[in-house]
Structures are given as C-alpha cells and as structure tokens.
C-alpha cells in the first residue's frame, strides 16, 4: 500500500483532485497501520501464533481427559476403548500434561507480547465486566474491552478447574503418600468438578459455534475491524490511540 512504485504514483495522480477526502482516509489508514502493525484497514490480530498453538494443544489434552474420564466411569465405553488400563494411562498422561502448554507458552512469550497482554486483560475485571456477568451480556451499551465478562469468567474458571483436577489427581494416583480419607475426598471432588468442567467447556464450545468469526480468529488469528468494533469496542479504540 505504501510502496512507491510507478503504479502507485500513477493511480495517485489519477485520483488526485477527484476526491480529496479519499486520499485523506487513505493517509489515516496508512498512519494507523504503521502505528500498529497488527492492524490494517480490514483485519486486526486477535491472537498471535503462540496463543493459538497453546489453545489448541490444551484443547486436545482437555478433551482427551474428558473422553477417557467418561469412559473410565462408563463400563460399556470402557469395553469399547479396550479396557481400563489403557484408558487410565492415557487419562493420567493427558491430565498431567494439561498445564504445560500454558505455562511454557507464557514463560516463552515476551513481556510485551500479545499473549502476556491478554493474560493481564483476562485477570483484570472491570465494572462493566461485572455488569456483563449480571445480565449475561444482554444489557445494551456495555462497552467491553478485548474480552467480555463471560470470557474472563470462563478463562479463570477453566484454569481453576485444571488446578483442582491436578491436585485431586495427584492424590488419586499417589494415594500411598496420603491418608486414605484424602483419596476419598479427592475422588469425590474430581467427580464433582468433572461435571462443572463439562458444563464450562460445553458452554465455551457452544458460544464458539454460535460466533464462527470468533472461532475462526482462534485458527487464523485475525478478526475484521467491524467485528472487533462490535464485540470489543474499547479494545479497538485503545489500539487507535496507541502512540507507536
């Protein structure tokens, strides 16, 4: 766009005078593109490669845990998957690996990276996020930042669930080190949070299916500016104001 080849000069000459406003718009867009390389006049980068990679590796591990976990509790499925031993090993393996993609991803990301920034955003809940949660996003005129209250709640809840599953899972697999009552308690809470995790992840996938642009952005990394303005007004606004 900003290349000064002959073609561009030509076309500029042609449009010159035809509409002064057009070239003004062009200039603003170029300026904004230079200000934020993650943004051009059509798309804005929502998730960088690191984030997307971590998301999908975590998703595969999470679903593996879920499916093998259900099968371990359902005898007909257990038979279908070829018995308890294989399922148990897969479940434990996937479970203990589950936190690693996120932890490694965060440690590998630079402080100013999109990944680190998004985690800071997910941590900080604003008044309008609480308002969003109270009305489940139905209240008009709420201006969300990059993530709305529901997305922040979901992210924290899933992270918390993973921690609970991990703690109880450690007790369940190495019960020799703990009083046996701990094992009973751990098993009970592992089962309870299975249902809560299932609920949260079903909601997460349902909303992704209902908002395909959002799902696509977790694959390609990009969303259209129009979409971003509709769903994350404050985020786009803030990006516009970025000095450099």
């Amino acid at each position: 766009m900003a290349q000064d080849s002959k073609d561009t000069t030509d076309s500029l000459e042609i449009t010159k005078g035809a509409n002064e406003n057009d070239s003004n718009v062009q200039e603003t867009l170029e300026k904004s593109f230079r200000a934020n390389p993650l943004k051009n006049n059509e798309f804005i980068i929502r998730f960088d490669l690191n984030e997307r990679f971590v998301h999908w590796v975590t998703a595969i591990l999470f679903l593996t845990c879920l499916v093998t976990g259900i099968a371990l509790k359902s005898p007909p499925l257990m038979v279908l998957f070829g018995g308890r031993t294989g399922l148990r090993i897969t479940h434990i393996f996937a479970g203990f690996l589950l936190p690693f993609p996120l932890v490694i991803g965060v440690l590998a990301a630079k402080k100013e990276s999109l990944f680190r920034k998004d985690i800071r955003l997910l941590n900080r809940w604003t008044n309008s996020d609480f308002e969003w949660l109270k009305t489940w996003g139905r209240k008009r005129g709420l201006e969300s930042h990059k993530f709305n209250g529901g997305q922040k709640a979901n992210a924290s809840f899933i992270a918390g669930t993973v921690i609970i599953m991990l703690l109880t899972g450690i007790v369940m697999t190495s019960y020799n080190l703990f009083p046996i009552n701990f094992r009973t308690g751990a098993t009970f809470f592992h089962n309870v949070f299975f249902y809560l995790a299932l609920f949260a992840i079903t909601g997460h996938i349902t909303y992704a299916m209902l908002n395909l642009d959002s799902l696509k952005s977790m694959i390609t990394g990009k969303v259209s500016i129009t979409w971003a303005k509709r769903h994350s007004k404050m985020w786009v606004k803030e990006d516009d104001e970025l000095p450099n």
Binding site: T168, G185, A186, F189
Partner: peptide, 9 residues
C-alpha cells in the same frame, strides 16, 4: 481443591 481433598470424604 485442597479443602476438598481434606474434607471431601
């Protein structure tokens, strides 16, 4: 999670 392990039973 910790409380659940201790008092869950």
């Amino acid at each position: 999670g910790v409380a659940g392990i201790a008092y869950g039973s």
